[in-house]
Computed example of a mutant assay.
Amino acid sequence: MFILSLTYVKPTEEADRFMAPHMDWVNAGYDNGLFLASGRKNPRTGGVILARGDQAEIEAYVAADPFTVEGVAMYEVTEVVVTRTAAGLEGLKG
């Protein structure tokens, strides 16, 4: 599993300009089975996505995010080997 932590490097007003295409990209990530969960950071400085796949696939997908392409946000991609979960989240292991 991967944690994709994005941090805005431009003002939130700039992020808002590209939010619709970014959300299309997020929705496509769910549709193609890469994304498991996502949401905004609080305070609103970026967001976090839980993803699955291989590292090259994840990094290529992140590079295509409109936020990345437009220089709005930077991503930190962290691989996590999940060994224990709460009941109902066993699918995160592996």
Rank of each mutant, 00 (worst) to 15 (best):
E14S: 15
V81A: 08
R44E: 15
Q55M: 06
E13L: 07
G88D: 05
G47R: 04
E70V: 01
V69I: 15
L36G: 02
L89Y: 15
E57N: 09
S5M: 11
F2K: 01
T78R: 06
I3F: 10
M1A: 02
F18Q: 12
S5V: 02
G91D: 07
S38D: 05
V82Q: 00
E13I: 02
H22F: 03
D65A: 04
E90W: 00
T85L: 06
I58V: 15
W25A: 09
A37E: 00
N27W: 11
D31T: 11
P21Q: 10
T85N: 06
K93E: 13
Y30S: 10
A51F: 01
A60H: 01
K41C: 10
G46M: 09
L6F: 13
V62K: 00
L50S: 05
A87F: 06
L92Q: 03
G29T: 03
T68L: 03
D54Q: 11
D16S: 13
T83C: 06
K10Q: 14
Y75N: 00
G33F: 10
K41S: 12
G94M: 07
A64S: 14
E79Q: 12
E57F: 15
G29H: 09
V9H: 00
Y75K: 03
T12L: 12
M19Q: 07
A73F: 04
T78L: 06
A15V: 04
D31Q: 15
N32H: 13
S5I: 07
V72P: 07
Y61F: 11
V77M: 01
R44H: 11
A20H: 06
L50H: 10
G53F: 02
A86I: 04
I49Y: 01
A51H: 05
A15W: 02
E76C: 01
T12H: 07
G29A: 13
A60G: 01
K41A: 11
S5Q: 13
W25R: 08
A28T: 11
R44T: 04
V62G: 02
T45H: 08
V26Q: 08
G39N: 01
T78M: 02
L50G: 09
F67L: 02
M1Y: 00
S38E: 03
A60R: 10
H22R: 05
G94Y: 08
S38M: 08
I49M: 09
V48L: 11
W25N: 04
L50P: 04
M23I: 14
A87T: 13
Y30R: 08
N27L: 12
V77D: 01
A28N: 15
R17Y: 01
D16A: 15
R17P: 00
E14I: 14
T78A: 07
I58F: 02
Y8Q: 02
D54G: 03
V80M: 12
L36M: 14
L92G: 05
M74T: 15
E79A: 14
G94C: 10
T45W: 00
